Simulated scan of single mutants.
Amino acid sequence: MIRLLIADDHPIVRDGLSGMFAADPGFEVVGEAGDGAEAIRLAEALRPDVILMDLQMPGVNGLAAISQLAERGVRSRVLVLTTYDTDGYVVPAIEAGATGYLLKDAPRDELLRAVRAAADGQSVLAPSVANTLMNHVRTPPDADLLSPRELEVLQLVAAGNTNRVTARHLFISEATVKTHLLNIYAKLDVSDRAAAVAEGFKRHLL
């Protein structure tokens, strides 16, 4: 009997998942949570074998909940069940300690098998998620694209600093900051500060 905790902020999703697993004699749904904070509290109290964790939840989101569960020594396996399969979601979830990552369009039988596998300590990834992880590993950060000074400027801009404050931090003139920014725009193929910051995160420079 696999003891299961379901964490999702949509009641209809929780009801559907709970009904699906309750209909299988190999599972027992021991609790349901509507946000990450409740998931942490219930996981500590109930110690389920597997936690089905949505990522986008109010307050404490799924990613933060996964990290806190690991920090608190909760040994339940966490299987992410979400609609997002981009590396901005997948990589942090796996790094935080998720055992597996599935999408909400997974067929019923696949989800049942995945929870059984997670309970056994096996990693379970949806095919598109596996591809995302492979691409992330194969695509190294563009670490040498910007000079060390340009990276410093971009980091300060990303933190919301004006050119004047950035210049003061780096002990250079505002004109020099503007020159660095123009070089950054050219290297990242963007035309403004916001796009430069977004591209910096996309290329793992920030």
Rank of each mutant, 00 (worst) to 15 (best):
D105T: 06
T82Y: 04
D144Q: 08
A93I: 07
L102S: 01
L112W: 00
A93G: 07
E150M: 11
E152W: 08
D105A: 04
V90F: 05
A98K: 06
L111Y: 04
A114N: 01
V129T: 07
T139C: 10
L145R: 14
L151Y: 10
G160W: 07
R138T: 11
S128E: 14
L125G: 01
N131I: 05
Q155C: 15
L111S: 03
D105Y: 04
P148L: 12
V91W: 07
L154H: 08
T99E: 12
T83K: 00
D109M: 07
V91E: 11
V157P: 00
V90Q: 05
D120L: 03
R108C: 05
A93Q: 05
T83N: 07
A96W: 11
A126C: 05
T132F: 13
A130M: 12
G121A: 13
S147V: 01
A118K: 02
A158V: 06
L156D: 11
D142E: 14
V80W: 03
K104A: 01
A98N: 11
T86K: 03
R138Y: 13
L111E: 03
G88W: 11
L151V: 14
G121T: 11
V91R: 09
G121C: 13
P127G: 00
D144Y: 10
L156M: 13
S128M: 11
G100H: 02
P127W: 01
G100W: 00
A93W: 06
L112D: 00
E110M: 07
R113N: 12
A96P: 09
L156Q: 11
G100L: 04
A93T: 07
E152R: 13
E95I: 06
V153P: 08
